[in-house]
């Protein structure tokens, strides 16, 4: 799998997001910053929707590396209980069915669904949806 960046997810199957735990305070952030201040920690694969929006226009390139042909997508902030709230794509749910508080689980989706071998990015989908 060609992940959009190294150090984002664990090599487990299924993978976990890799967060950073601040050694001094225990505060968890995502992604894990470089350097000694943070240690890598595998984050929970499940959480609940904290907030979201729909990206309805194509972001400018650079920096966006998604496809030229744009279809709106959902951006989520997902609360991983006791850890941190992470930003991610939201997938496998119709825009009108999105509800704050809905249970979600981690998956990986292609940045360009139409390109074979596209870079994969983290996303969350409704928990217990299609395997």
């Amino acid at each position: 799998m060609h992940v959009i960046a190294q150090g984002l997810i664990t090599e487990d199957n299924p993978p976990h997001l890799i967060g950073g735990r601040e050694r001094e305070t225990g505060r968890v952030v995502f992604p894990c910053p470089p350097g000694e201040r943070y240690e890598q920690v595998a984050l929970s694969r499940t959480g609940t929707l904290w907030s979201y929006t729909i990206q309805r226009y194509r972001p400018k390139s650079p920096p966006y590396k998604g496809p030229e042909a744009f279809r709106p997508w959902a951006v989520a902030y997902v609360e991983l209980p006791g850890e941190v709230i992470v930003e991610s794509r939201l997938t496998d749910v119709a825009f009108e069915d999105i509800r704050i508080g809905m249970p979600l689980e981690l998956t990986m989706i292609p940045l360009d669904p139409d390109a074979p071998g596209s870079m994969m990015i983290p996303a969350f989908r409704p928990a217990g949806a299609a395997a």
Partner: peptide, 22 residues
């Protein structure tokens, strides 16, 4: 990190929208 922009998250309107949605 670079991937954050590559994935389409360097967008101020996304933040404002997610903030008010909450």
């Amino acid at each position: 990190p670079e991937w954050y922009g590559d994935a389409g998250y360097m967008i101020t309107t996304q933040f404002f929208a997610a903030k008010i949605m909450r």
